[in-house]
Design a binder for these strands. Structure first.
Lengths: 217, 217
DNA sequence: CATTCTTCCATAACGGTGTTATACATGGCC
DNA sequence: GGCCATGTATAACACCGTTATGGAAGAATG
């Protein structure tokens, strides 16, 4: 493999700093010192800290996508959907700061993804890598519809519902609203997965059986 | 009413700046200039920008709680739950930057609520005002259980599921993932509300009827 | 009333941040 | 050799949060 260039080393250092010390420790001077270059490298390669944060989010989504793609697909599409959600949560909780940056939720020193304001369009359309993760959800949802487990409808709309539930749950668990980590999954995470799938057309027995194969209990 | 003191004026100015120019425009110097005092006022009253951000989040939750409390309660607890969710969304979308600060999701110039890192416990336990909003959800959920609309169980656990769904949906809509604002409600927001309630024990007909009274269609 | 103490704020400075202007080094190309 | 493009080091600039210092105003105390 080719020797990593300065650009890649800067992104790696940023991700490392992000996971170690949070968003505030991702600073141009610290990055440059870690990589062994001057702060100018940030500007020749990314045009500024904002561009570097975008690159961080992009590689975060890349790893996220491959992680989701590695989840084995079986014969039960609802079980696959649950496993996908589980991998989603594991990734988000494994690197919560990176996950926050990916969704423009948190950002080093005021360098958000799309403008400084939360409402400026948002990173929704700006990162095609983000759409890819959504596409994986959509595919499994579509399979579940064809298998007769979920009511037939627009897979994108249903995937949006699933995404909302996972995203919200994960963020609240990261923020500590469900007490000690792990406990939230039993009383909120698993139930919301089962209940949403039931509302989407699955039977209670089938949903619980699929969940049991993923989370036990 | 008493003349507002410097402390209240600082918080108001911060909330105003937050909604106008986003988190990055909430700066000690700008706050002081707006109120007509020096930056020292921030330190005598709040100990620093971090304390001011916490005060902002606190008053944000206060307004949030009264807003939710103003939602009229009727005879149909599921309808009430939908109306609560609708008011929740309206508040979050009405002041998305404030909402983000309330949940420690975004913060001016690296001044998060509980430490600089996303994972440092989170603001979950630190803001009792946040628990009050959750309590309002829990009460309505409990009423829906006693009315036979939702399966009997732990109201707090069920409220946690409802909260996850709303929180996730609202954040994704703010981030622009559902296209133009408003459209997301039709294809994702309303369906997830109905489907989650069905999964929690309500019948499809009853859930759709309650939703129809809130959102029409 | 005089004195002291407390509270609050203005001024000015300090350290640290992202950013930028400038100059230099390097390597490919004609 | 001459030339240009690319990437980087240095040093400075503007801005930010923060803090040390001192002063003003009022309450508390004798």
């Amino acid at each position: 493999m080719a020797e990593p260039g300065t650009r890649e080393r800067l992104v790696d250092a940023a991700i490392h700093l992000l996971s170690e010390g949070g968003p505030d420790s991702v600073q141009a001077r610290k990055l440059a010192a870690d990589v062994g270059v001057s702060t100018m490298a940030v500007y020749t390669h990314f045009g500024g800290m904002g561009g570097l944060v975008e690159a961080v989010a992009r590689t975060g989504f890349d790893r996220f996508n491959t992680r989701l793609a590695e989840v084995p697909r079986g014969t039960d599409p609802v079980e696959d959907l649950f496993r996908l959600g589980d991998a989603y949560r594991e990734y988000a909780l494994g690197s919560p700061n990176l996950y926050s940056v990916m969704f423009g939720i948190s950002a080093p020193a005021g360098h958000r993804l799309a403008g400084g304001d939360v409402t400026s369009d948002g990173p929704g359309e700006h990162l095609p890598e983000g759409q890819e993760a959504f596409g994986q959800l959509e595919t499994v949802v579509s399979r579940a519809m064809h298998a007769g487990r979920l009511r037939t409808g627009d897979p994108a709309a249903v995937a949006g519902q699933v995404w909302s539930a996972i995203h919200g749950y994960v963020l609240l668990e990261i923020a500590g609203y469900f007490g000690e980590l792990g406990r939230g999954m039993d009383i909120v995470g698993t139930p919301i997965a089962i209940n949403l799938v039931i509302g989407l057309g699955d039977t209670g027995d089938a949903a619980r059986a699929s969940a049991q194969r993923v989370w036990g209990g």
